[in-house]
Design a protein around this nucleic acid. Sequence first.
DNA 1: AGTTGAACCTCTAGTGGCTAGAGGATGTAT
DNA 2: ATACATCCTCTAGCCACTAGAGGTTCAACT
Lengths: 142, 142
Amino acid sequence: MLTIGNLAKKTGTKVQTIRYYEQIELMPEPGRTEGGQRRYGDAEIDRLSFIRHSRQLGFSLDAIRELLDLGDHPNRPCHEADAIARRQLKQVERRIARLEALRTELNRMVHECSGGRTADCRVLEVLRDHAACLTDHDGIGA
Amino acid sequence: MLTIGNLAKKTGTKVQTIRYYEQIELMPEPGRTEGGQRRYGDAEIDRLSFIRHSRQLGFSLDAIRELLDLGDHPNRPCHEADAIARRQLKQVERRIARLEALRTELNRMVHECSGGRTADCRVLEVLRDHAACLTDHDGIGA
DNA sequence: AGTTGAACCTCTAGTGGCTAGAGGATGTAT
DNA sequence: ATACATCCTCTAGCCACTAGAGGTTCAACT
């Protein structure tokens, strides 16, 4: 039986985050000691590891909820899990493409910086320059 | 003189976002009509464009505040602006590296999915499998 | 058995960067 | 004069945590 702190260490999670997951019902309410402290078993380690690993792969908590639910029904067809993963992959690919465009622009900016006064600064100039603007208006999240 | 709605259209910003920028003092308080509606001039278009463009390049609002401040002092040396841009470039590069690792894992996951029952699903298996876990605990933001 | 002190508890509020909606006032075109 | 799109303020919500106040419990050591 693990304390919340030890569960946190084992899974690379913060203690508060575990309590937060309990609050939003992503983790179940664990058993408690007489004094009211949480105690965890192996099932909880597995579940939390699954959650953390999924988070590291960029899945949203909602997607993880779905995936956990699928895992609880071993006889259902798995194309839903596959679809969730494919959606995630698409999102990651879009983010990469976006960031690569940013990298190109930022690279140009810093390489053209003359090191003079701010009045002549390429960095500020590029930022100011409307014409050099990326043409879409999706923001950085996309 | 532009209404807030027209400024929004011109710069690809939402109306609420402009008011939010005013609230956090990133945009100055504009003039008002008799009736209390905001009216904007060219200086505001430029400033907001600068902000939006910087956001698209992934700069935080705090970084943008610094950049705007630098732009207001044309005789100062520009290495600060350069440093901010370089920091941003580093961050973008780190994010790209991270996302590329995710892409690899997700790709493996979806390509190994057999299309059978969830009990045999590679997607869920990989997520469950502790050993296959990315070894660092930085989360997706890093 | 008593004492220390780290780790636990609940609760509230804050982060970034917006976004949404209620409920009402204004501006402009007809 | 009237319609109605747009504007106003204010509050609350989103995601996924994170931080801190103020108090309690547990385990180890004397």
